[in-house]
């Protein structure tokens, strides 16, 4: 990170964690048998006004991080700060400025969805009560239905609506689009865009990259309680590389392409070479130029594939590789 952007970030950081560690007690038959480390030194910085994607597989520590930010969990060690205060010190005053969508949204009871939303609005001193109707209409939610009779998708609508109701300056959304059909996902994305247009900051987690890359400016990838990569979406896409296929007039030997820098996963079948290219294609093209090239295909890899790369590599090796990637990128 350059000095200028670091200074800018320090000036207006909405969420900051440093060396955040969270251990859960793992009890069997009531006896404490040890601890499970959910967060292992997580460092994070979310700047005001950005849409920040927080990506990782289930169990990577996304919800743990988020629930610490909302003071539902207390960190074992390390530091967390939201809107200028630690979650415990900030308390209700800070939470009043946050809209939160839980990852595991549980709602019971025979009260109606409208009553529940009214209740949540009252907990916020009445802010946003006038928007219940319009937002419900926008998402096609029937406010008169009892909560317990709602489908998972409809419950998710209630969750999304309550997070946006009071037009908070910070939205913390844990897996926001899970359970929403594609049309409503578009509606949700539109709401995120409107919120950021009005200056809101959005911190959203997901285990599906595609739903974050459309809207997020920066993305952090979390794995086993640590950030393993942090970049803007364009750079991530660059790191993801291209899937290249070259077809030659004559049969090709595999070893000719195996040692080219930036080329991985080389696969040779008869006349065709397939490989993963990261960075500049120069060396690959020069090697190919020694032969008669018949056909050339280079496709951007989905970030999804990059995402998979991170899961494929064991955590230990991953840190080394992630650093290397960053060096290449700059």
């Amino acid at each position: 990170m350059t000095t200028t952007s670091a200074r800018a970030a320090a000036a207006d950081v909405v969420i900051r964690t440093a060396g955040l560690i969270k251990d859960y007690r793992s009890a069997r038959r009531g006896r404490t048998t040890g601890h499970v480390r959910a967060l292992d030194g997580l460092d994070l910085e979310v700047r005001r006004g950005e849409v920040f994607g927080f990506l990782g597989p289930n169990g990577a520590g996304k919800s743990t991080t988020i629930r610490i930010l909302l003071d539902q969990l207390r960190p074992t060690a390390g530091y967390a700060e939201v809107l200028g205060a630690t979650p415990a010190a900030g308390g209700p005053a800070v939470r009043a400025r946050i809209g939160y969508l839980p990852g595991e949204l549980a709602m019971q009871g025979r009260e109606t969805a409208g009553d529940l939303l009214e209740h949540l609005v009252r907990l916020r001193g009445g802010r946003g009560s006038g928007r219940i109707g319009p937002l419900a209409e926008r998402f096609g939610l029937d406010l008169t239905k009892p909560i317990r009779s709602l489908s998972k998708g409809n419950k998710q609508k209630v969750g999304v609506i309550q997070a946006f109701l009071h037009a908070p300056e910070l939205l913390i959304l844990d897996e926001p689009t899970s359970g929403l059909d594609p049309l409503l996902q578009q509606e949700f994305l539109a709401m995120v865009r409107e919120a950021t247009a009005d200056g809101a900051t959005v911190f959203m987690s997901s285990h599906v990259l595609s739903e974050v890359e459309i809207i997020a400016e920066r993305v952090a990838i979390v794995r086993e309680g640590r950030i393993v990569d942090l970049d803007d979406v364009a750079t991530l896409r660059h790191h993801a590389g291209q899937q290249v296929a070259l077809r030659f007039a004559d049969p090709i030997r595999a070893d000719e392409f195996a040692e080219i820098p930036g080329v991985e996963d080389v696969e040779v079948t008869d006349h065709t070479v397939r490989c993963l290219l990261r960075g500049e294609p120069d060396a690959l093209l020069k090697a190919a130029a020694a032969h008669h090239v018949v056909r050339w295909v280079a496709e951007d890899r989905e970030l999804e594939d990059l995402f998979l790369d991170f899961y494929r590599v064991p955590a230990g090796e991953l840190h080394a590789e992630a650093e290397e990637v960053v060096v290449h990128g700059r």
Partner: peptide, 17 residues
């Protein structure tokens, strides 16, 4: 346990209240 305290606990309400 059933999760329905989550929305209340993350609203601007202190744990004491």
């Amino acid at each position: 346990e059933d999760g329905s305290l989550e929305l209340e606990g993350t609203a601007p309400v202190s744990r004491r209240q």
